[in-house]
Design a protein around this nucleic acid. Structure first.
Lengths: 337, 337
DNA sequence: TTGTAGGCGTTATCAA
DNA sequence: TTGATAACGCCTACAA
């Protein structure tokens, strides 16, 4: 923005304060850092001057000399999802406890954006990186990991990660559907990415344990858009026999599907049960209120910072202990007709 | 994170490259900047070396010497709201065109968080600040404005701002309700903040123009939580005579109210019409689909960057020309019984 | 076409 | 308790 405009001249540096206080710049530094090695009177004078003159520390200079920025970079695929927002909040709060500040980037699930975000953070010399549900390849992060500590959240094929038992949450949903009497259960996958598709894994394993055959016709794919949810509903309706229940990729997908179903005259849960995932804010106040799984995202965020911190200190952190996911039973699921 | 660990040693600087290429560091700089003042062969060699050695520019050093960071700070009150996300995207894209990168902070509507965010950005020496719907006082920003170019979005009591006609959108809603035959119309205000409450203004002015008396009993306040929406519904039901329509603060508020109403046996729009604001992703697929107002947020984002750019170059930007807000009529509004 | 020199704002180390 | 100095990584004159 500014190249040669009037904004530049205002910048107050430590030198300006030093001149005003008639001391050496290094004394100002010490005073501003509350070092005991400075006379209280001097400290007070300098503090007063600093705020009076509107001094703002220059992070660039600090980072340069300290060789650390005090920043943690967070790369999030979709901040619109309250799920991730809680995670971000947990990260922020915990980072603050360790005197780190947080820089967040929403990549909107785009892989190139993820790379760019990581790049920016690298240039900013962040002291650590937290990357939930990364889209880039394992190899990419493996390499990155040599440069800066990286912690993944809910992605278990990378060197360092913090996850809650992703499979467990999905198992809860499946078990709930079984208990209601469902046997023919559809599943909506998320946008294909790297990693192990734990929901899919849980889906298949649950069926297996229940002695139900896996039917590829009952698998659909959600790409994050509303249209894709509508398409899935079309596919559902085109089936010879609809499943009696569907485990949706997430709540947004579930809500959109319920709507599309209603438009076509299919009622939830009377004609078909739909379970979501994430427990977003609106999940409880749509019609019907959504049965879904709640994650301890805030805690996950905290844990990931602790893990990162340990990593940065050369320790090999122990596995994080996390509260388990929680099944929230509402009204979008019921017994099959 | 890292203090004395193994990550430090990996850092490659232009000096390392210079040594490897057997040239002076300044030559490396030139080569990396594609300056014409360097022999193609040298440039190629250096470029190869740089990527081979995994060179990452040090923004701190750059910022220090250039006296500019190439960063634009964006302070957003709620990234969970797709509305703001579009804005952020518009800002990002337009900023990229001007070779700026974007740092975003979600303040969750907390004033202290807003200050902290601004502070961080100031320390990062951002070249400009974009602040939609700021919570901090006008005075605060007036002062800030002496340090760094600041552009506000949709807040018209500050020195520099880009807004679409905030009033206009609300007028559209009111007019729509009038046309359906409503006269007794409730209004839900948002969390009190600074600024002019344009929706409220539009509400009152619309009533006035229509010759309808303003009735303070029909004014409610939404604080952003689901509970508050439920409370508003209780207040509504406690009224001697319910309004026949309500202009809700935003879509989330509207959806939550519709749900609370249904729980109490009141049907929308049969018994009462509810109009939202923002047109969030889910607005079209809840039941009933929401009548709401759509904003050109992406364009607003672009314009705010252009404005900022002009500001930073010492120009006084002309008023931005923006596409108008758009009324989206769906099924949550109808004629009164 | 390339090298030299100085400085951006801050801090750590050492000396006073 | 304070001051002097060098250094962090990069860039821009200017000189060669």
């Amino acid at each position: 923005m500014m190249t040669n405009s009037n904004w530049q001249k205002k910048r107050v540096t430590i030198k300006d304060i030093a001149r005003a206080a008639d001391v050496d710049p290094s004394t100002v530094t010490r005073a501003l850092q509350d070092s005991p090695r400075v006379k209280p009177a001097t400290r007070a004078k300098i503090a007063a001057l600093a705020s009076e003159m509107g001094y703002v520390p220059n992070m660039a200079a600090r980072t340069l000399v300290n060789r650390r920025s005090g920043l943690v970079g967070v790369v999030i695929p979709d901040l619109t999802n309250p799920f991730f927002r809680d995670l971000a909040k947990g990260i922020e709060d915990e980072a603050a406890k360790h005197d780190f500040r947080t820089v967040v980037n929403d990549t909107r699930g785009v892989e190139s954006a993820e790379r760019e975000a990581v790049n920016l953070f690298l240039e900013l010399k962040v002291d650590g990186l937290i990357v939930p549900m990364a889209r880039c390849t394992e190899a990419y992060y493996e390499q990155l990991n040599a440069t800066v500590p990286v912690v993944h959240v809910n992605r278990d094929d990378t060197p360092h990660h913090v996850s809650c038992d992703t499979v467990e949450g999905s198992v809860l949903i499946m078990r709930h559907l079984f208990e209601l009497g469902h046997e023919r259960i559809g599943f909506v996958r998320g946008p294909a990415g790297p990693g192990r598709e734990p929901k899919m894994y849980a889906y298949r394993r649950s069926l297996e344990e229940r002695g139900i055959d896996y039917d590829p016709d009952l698998i659909f794919t959600f790409d994050g858009t509303l249209e894709s949810s509508a398409r899935i509903v079309e596919q559902l309706l085109a089936l010879d026999a609809m499943p009696t229940a569907v485990f949706a990729h997430n709540d947004v997908n579930a809500i959109a599907m319920i709507h599309a179903l209603r438009v076509r005259g299919v009622e939830v849960p009377k004609d078909i049960s739909i379970a979501g995932h994430d427990d977003i804010q609106l999940a409880g106040c749509v019609d019907p209120p959504l049965t879904t799984v709640q994650w301890p995202m805030y805690e996950l965020g905290q844990q990931s910072v602790r893990y990162l911190y340990a990593l940065g200190h050369g320790q090999t952190p122990r596995e994080a202990q996390l509260p388990p996911p929680k099944l929230i039973v509402r009204e979008s699921t019921g017994s099959p007709a």
